[in-house]
């Protein structure tokens, strides 16, 4: 059904094995990330989201099991740099992942590390900045950018490596709503228009709704997976592991359980508004008020 870009088989990760502070962070994870999809990974704090994400570009290696990227195993040291080029990564705190004091020089950092010729570096930098809409800011110092801009800059830094997959570990957690929207629009654009595979680790359910597929982690295990509609129809299962439904889905559920004929599969505010408007005109509520 899909062309697997990243395959995870029997992945277990243990921090500090055999030493004090040993901790099983991931347990027997299996799954495929398909080419061109937008996958959201959600789960409560400490459920192993970051640990899992760091396996996709060989920052962490499996204690047991395998992770392969386009058929290249992350455990083989010979593959490490190839994998880092194919899987770009963006971290949570925008301030701690920018290395240079000028926007365009920061984007150039990755390609320069690859030893590419200067003209090629220049081309990649210009393209990456255009893709995230920061072309105008290219000579500014990053510490004067807004949070959303900084995070888009971090995305540009990853794009300049020409990855086919982008993994983002809670990229919007430290942003205000406007910055969050900026970053999400950028990611959706890259996924829909550039065909980039995007893996979005997030704790905002409203963001997971935008994905093609959702993985739910709990206690280091992959406990639930499916389309957003499938996953968020499991209200009880989600509640058991401490996750709430997206606001509109929760409201739809409450209306339904108090007897209103609200259908399944309502996830976004638009869905809900359309449904309620329909209900109002059917029942004649609007006229009576």
């Amino acid at each position: 059904m899909c062309k697997a870009q990243i395959s995870i088989r029997g992945l277990t990760h243990i921090y500090h094995p055999g030493r004090p502070g040993e901790r099983i962070a991931l347990q027997d994870i299996n799954g495929d990330i398909c080419q061109g999809e937008l996958l959201a990974i959600i789960g409560p704090n400490g459920s192993g989201k970051s640990t899992l994400a760091r396996h996709f570009n060989a920052l962490l290696l499996p204690t047991r099991g395998t992770v392969t990227v386009d058929g290249l195993s992350t455990t083989d040291p010979a593959n490490r740099w190839e994998i880092r080029c194919r899987v770009g990564m963006v971290l949570q705190n925008p301030d701690n992942q920018l290395v240079a004091s000028v926007v365009e020089e920061d984007v150039a950092f990755g390609p320069e590390n690859l030893g590419l010729p200067p003209e090629e570096v220049r081309r990649r930098v210009d393209r990456a900045l255009a893709l995230v809409g920061l072309g105008e800011q290219r000579l500014r110092p990053p510490h004067l950018l807004s949070g959303g801009q900084k995070q888009r800059l971090a995305i540009a830094g990853a794009l300049a490596m020409k990855p086919s997959c982008l993994v983002l570990d809670e990229p919007t957690a430290m942003l205000d709503p406007a910055g969050r929207r900026e970053v999400l629009q950028t990611l959706l654009g890259l996924n829909r228009e550039e065909g980039l595979t995007v893996v979005l680790v997030t704790h905002f359910m409203e963001e997971a709704v935008l994905a093609d597929r959702v993985w739910v982690l709990s206690g280091g295990r992959l406990v639930l997976e499916g389309t957003p509609a499938q996953v968020f129809s499991q209200r009880e299962g989600m509640q058991k592991i401490g996750l709430a439904l997206p606001g509109p889905a929760e409201l739809a559920w409450r209306l339904r359980s108090s007897g209103w004929p609200v259908p399944d599969g309502i996830l976004t505010l638009d869905d809900l508004v359309a449904c309620l408007a329909g209900l109002l005109s059917e029942t004649g509520w609007g006229r009576r008020q």
């Binding site: 920052l59 740099w81 880092r84 080029c85 770009g88 701690n96 290395v99 590390n113 690859l114 490596m161």
Partner: peptide, 9 residues
Amino acid sequence: TAMEIRCYR
């Protein structure tokens, strides 16, 4: 970590 991600060696 961020530098390693971008292939700094």
